[in-house]
Design a protein around this nucleic acid. Structure first.
Length: 589
DNA sequence: GCCGTTTTCGGCCCGACTGTTTTCAGTCG
């Protein structure tokens, strides 16, 4: 079993234990173990062989044993027994908003419900409302939740979520009562997909803001409305939470609601180690004794004392002995340790980008002409624009053969010489990697180009070994400059083809081939989780929009998000170099 | 189940909102 498959089993165990009513900390231990495996930056087989599993934080004796068994046999008796003891319908019921393990257990114990369909029937017959702890409203909410389950569970690509969120944020900022407003959550962290939107507002008068938020025309449903918080659902199922705090608490709340959860847990533990308690309310001396309620009261009392020193997230991090951690890095993946040592990278920014390489025109399947694309690139202030239309094997995309490509090279040379644009056009191609790893165009024509992007567009069903060997063969071609969308994934739509990314990265480093961070919001491929380690190993990144029209050039912004999440600096990214630097790089390869 | 410049046992992040209750449990983030 691969590490992600093993992580999936551990997560499944966690969920099942929760439904059994097990100790919540045990549940958390399994989920944490799954997460630790997912973020492991090496092969799990290596770690097992070298007996280092228990050195991974969150994995102890029991989990190490189970992971080893799963890796060796692909099965785990403990998991299978557990699965057999719980109806699969109960797990599915967890997807219904408002239903957690305890309520599902009660429904199962008292009404014998073990599937979503049975639950719907019981609600319709009014049997759920009659249960202790349930009522009419719970019953209605469950029914609505069942109806909308698919839409509610859906995640949304960052780009689309941002497009919904931005006008609302601007609207909030324009309200007279609002001192300041920000996005929080995974949107602010630049995650590739977003579950819901979080808006955070600092204000003194709250009611008018809540009122404005829940009465937007895009709102389909108001799911919660309190003094400091409101939740709504927009068309398409995207949910948004608004939270309002007094201005003095904004920095704490912004940090808290930006997350991630793992980052917050680590920050709170760090605070506790310093005798402080961190929450969205503030940073106050930790109370040793007393109930949760008393502690909260004590916190509120002492709140004002500390708050005046902390006006921003920068102050908050500083109070815990840390440099400022950009939101994109707050995933609990070592950013706190790096911030403590002052070793956080200076992350690449959109303004660092001086040009892009992988773009299409009407010559293949683009929707804008060469001149239109160059004009748009110039509008972005870029020094160069690379054109990489499809090659002939991508017949469906009107790919270019050798003769058409040569005509395009001549056309680009003429355009550059005309002086019509200050942005220089570089000649490239997105050359198909054929199923056996050969390239789709003659080497002679490839040598006439400034660069060659090699990409897989066919035979996705090959085995991992075949696909990996195929891509590596292409990387080893003397004309290959960069590897396009390395896994071919389409977010929320299609898994990538199976490929051993670690081996591909090794081959790219060895052959001085750059790997693309395809910035198309649907791709963001290679995934940000690989980049930190890959860059340390010397891999050169190139952020490419894969634009098929002038608007597609904007997508670089999404690629920047992903690059930042991958701890990349401008030095790691080829297209932060100016035209001379890029020409130098391409010549020396 | 994990973990330890307080500890090998006894902790494990913390608060808001909802619905059902008359003081709180469950859920959520």
């Amino acid at each position: 079993m691969t590490k992600n498959e093993i992580a999936g089993v551990l997560e499944g165990i966690g969920v099942l234990l929760e439904l059994k009513g097990e100790n919540p900390f045990k549940v958390r231990a399994y989920l944490a173990g799954a997460r630790a495996l997912e973020t492991l930056e090496e092969e799990v087989g290596t770690v097992i062989a070298e007996d280092r599993l228990q050195a991974i934080p969150g994995i102890g004796e029991a989990l190490a044993k189970k992971i080893t068994e799963l890796h060796a046999t692909g099965r785990l008796g403990f998991h299978e027994k557990l699965k057999a003891s719980i109806a699969p319908g109960l797990v599915e019921m967890l997807e219904i908003p408002g239903l957690g393990a305890k309520k599902i257990k009660a429904l199962h114990a008292k009404l014998g419900i073990s599937a979503v369909a049975e639950l719907a029937r019981a609600c319709a017959e009014g049997r759920v409302a009659a249960l202790d702890g349930f009522g009419e409203k719970s019953q209605e909410k469950i029914l609505a939740g069942i109806r909308n389950r698919a839409a509610y569970a859906r995640r949304h690509r960052w780009w689309e979520a941002f497009a919904v969120a931005e006008p609302i944020l601007q609207g909030l900022r324009a309200l007279p009562q609002v001192r300041c407003a920000e996005h929080a959550g995974s949107l602010r962290r630049g995650l590739e997909t977003v579950g819901d939107l979080d808006f955070l507002v600092a204000a003194e008068a709250w009611a008018p803001i809540v009122e404005w938020f829940i009465t937007r025309p895009e709102v389909r449903e108001v799911t919660a409305k309190g003094e400091t918080k409101a939740s709504v659902r927009y068309a398409g199922g995207l949910q948004a939470d608004l939270r309002i705090v007094p201005p003095a608490q904004f920095a704490f709340a912004l940090h808290h609601f930006t997350g991630s959860k793992d980052h917050n847990v680590q920050m709170r533990q760090r605070a506790l180690a310093r005798g402080l308690s961190l929450s969205e309310w503030g940073l106050v001396p930790a109370e040793g004794e007393g109930t949760a309620k008393e502690k909260a009261a004590a916190q509120r009392k002492s709140r004002s004392a500390k708050l005046e020193h902390i006006r921003s997230e920068t102050d908050l991090f500083a109070a815990l002995g840390l440099h400022y951690i950009p939101p994109e890095l707050r995933e609990g993946l070592g950013e706190i340790e790096a911030a403590e040592k002052g070793e956080l990278p200076r992350l690449v920014e959109a303004a660092d980008i001086r040009g892009v390489f992988h773009n299409h025109t009407t010559a293949s399947d683009g929707r804008n002409t060469l001149a239109e694309m160059v004009a748009a690139a110039q509008g972005h202030g870029w020094e160069y624009l690379g054109i990489a239309d499809h090659s002939k094997a991508s017949f469906q995309a009107n790919g270019l053969d050798e003769a058409r490509l040569r005509r395009q090279i001549a056309e680009i040379a003429a355009l550059n010489q005309s002086g019509r644009f200050t942005t220089q056009v570089l000649t490239g191609v997105e050359c198909d990697i054929l199923p056996d790893g050969r390239l789709d165009l003659d080497e002679a024509v490839l040598r006439e180009l400034d660069y060659v992007v090699v990409s897989v567009h066919s035979a996705f069903t090959q085995s991992e070994a075949e696909m990996t060997a195929r891509i590596i063969r292409a990387i080893e071609h003397p004309c290959a400059t960069m590897l396009g969308h390395p896994t071919g994934r389409l977010l929320l739509k299609r898994e990538g083809y199976p490929v051993n990314v670690a081996k591909v990265i090794d081959a790219a480093v060895a052959n001085r081939v750059a790997i693309e961070l395809n910035a198309h919001p649907q791709r963001l491929d290679l995934d940000w989780r690989h980049w930190r380690r890959a860059a340390e190993r010397g891999l050169c990144c190139v952020i490419n929009p894969d634009a098929h029209d002038t608007a597609g050039l904007e997508h670089v912004r999404a690629g920047i998000n992903a690059a930042r999440k991958g701890w990349l600096t401008a030095e790691h990214v080829l297209n932060t170099r100016g035209l001379a630097g890029v020409r130098d790089y391409l010549r020396k390869r």
